[in-house]
């Protein structure tokens, strides 16, 4: 009997068709790249039982278990169940494996669990977003990064969430040591200066990276109670026009960012090309076609920004154009 497999269904189930006939790979998404080490043992077991003993650590912080045979998919899905449960992945049918793969794993840098530069818990936010958007077949890439260093390469995502903090300055604790000024100059954007022995922050220039706060020896500079984020949108890699995402919101809050992401799913459903291969079209190309003004209308539906949030009304993306070279 010939091998009869619905590849569309298989892909949706987070398996991959490989270049070797009859052999695929099982993909495990790990939101925020943060997991109980126990899961590593489970991955090992699946790999050694059903795969070829090798695992690829994916660029989006998942595992890809290589060399699995398509006839084992059901058995593997059973083995994936405790992993899915431990990672608290939304799932409609227990035991049936991952329910979708279009919306990619929400990746994150290590964040404030470890990194002194980070401005928030990136894995926590990644999980929170995952809970809201997954499962979904639409091709969305979202990443959370702790600060403007952007170790998660959030700017190459449809939605790059970059942690910020608003420096709070208590002049009565400041000893004019200038560590903050030197820190901002050498590690960031040179937004600080001293006037009359006190620190003045150029609010137009400041990117809210928080470096100055980590340098202050007296706690004259501290983090804002509120957590802030930059939302950079529509960055991408790819064959036609790779480009960096541009700031849509600066000094934004978590709730509105999630709202905008959810609104974007509705926008894509409305405007995605009916001819999109595999039902997937990068959101950025849809916006290029439909126009940013139209996107903005959809994205900001029901969004009430905080007074300090800066909204960029017009965005032009550039990047490298391989699609119209010489034109």
């Amino acid at each position: 009997m010939g091998m009869d497999i619905n590849t569309k269904k298989l892909k949706k189930n987070a398996f991959r068709v490989s270049k070797e006939r009859g052999i695929g790979a099982a993909r495990i998404r790990v939101p925020g790249g943060y997991l109980d080490a126990e899961i590593l043992g489970m991955v090992q077991e699946i790999s050694q039982t059903y795969g070829n003993g090798y695992v690829h650590l994916t660029t989006r912080q998942g595992f890809e278990i290589e060399g699995i045979r398509f006839e084992d998919m059901e058995a593997i899905n059973k083995k994936l169940q405790p992993i899915i449960e431990k990672l608290e992945i939304n799932q409609e049918e227990p035991g049936a494996g991952y329910p979708a793969s279009g919306t990619r794993n929400i990746s994150a840098c290590i964040g404030n669990n470890v990194c002194p530069f980070a401005n928030y818990n990136t894995a926590e936010l990644a999980k929170k977003i995952e809970k809201k958007v997954f499962p979904n077949d639409l091709h969305f890439k979202i990443a959370c990064t702790g600060c403007s260093n952007d170790c998660a390469k959030a700017r190459m995502h449809d939605f790059g969430i970059i942690g910020m903090t608003m420096p709070q300055y208590d002049p009565s604790r400041c000893v004019s040591c200038q560590a903050c000024i030197k820190g901002c100059r050498s590690l960031s954007v040179d937004a600080l200066r001293m006037e009359n022995y006190k620190i003045v922050r150029d609010t137009e220039k400041c990117i809210g990276c928080g470096v100055c706060i980590t340098k202050c020896p007296t706690r004259a500079l501290t983090r804002s109670k509120k957590k802030y984020y930059k939302l950079a949108i529509m960055g991408r890699t790819g064959k036609r026009n790779p480009r960096l995402g541009k700031d849509f919101l600066v000094w934004a809050d978590e709730e509105n960012i999630i709202k905008i992401i959810l609104n974007t799913y509705r926008f894509v459903k409305e405007y995605i090309s009916p001819n999109a291969p595999g039902g997937k079209e990068h959101i950025g190309y849809i916006i290029d076609r439909v126009g940013f003004e139209e996107y903005k209308k959809w994205a900001l539906d029901g969004v009430e920004l905080m007074p300090e949030t800066i909204l960029n009304d017009c965005i032009y993306w550039d990047g490298i154009h391989f699609d119209n070279q010489g034109k």
Binding site: Y120, G163, T222, R223
Partner: peptide
């Protein structure tokens, strides 16, 4: 002083 340490979500006692 909650959240007023050097790093994100760290406190300081002063």
């Amino acid at each position: 002083m909650k959240g007023e340490g050097c790093f994100s979500e760290t406190d300081v006692v002063r």
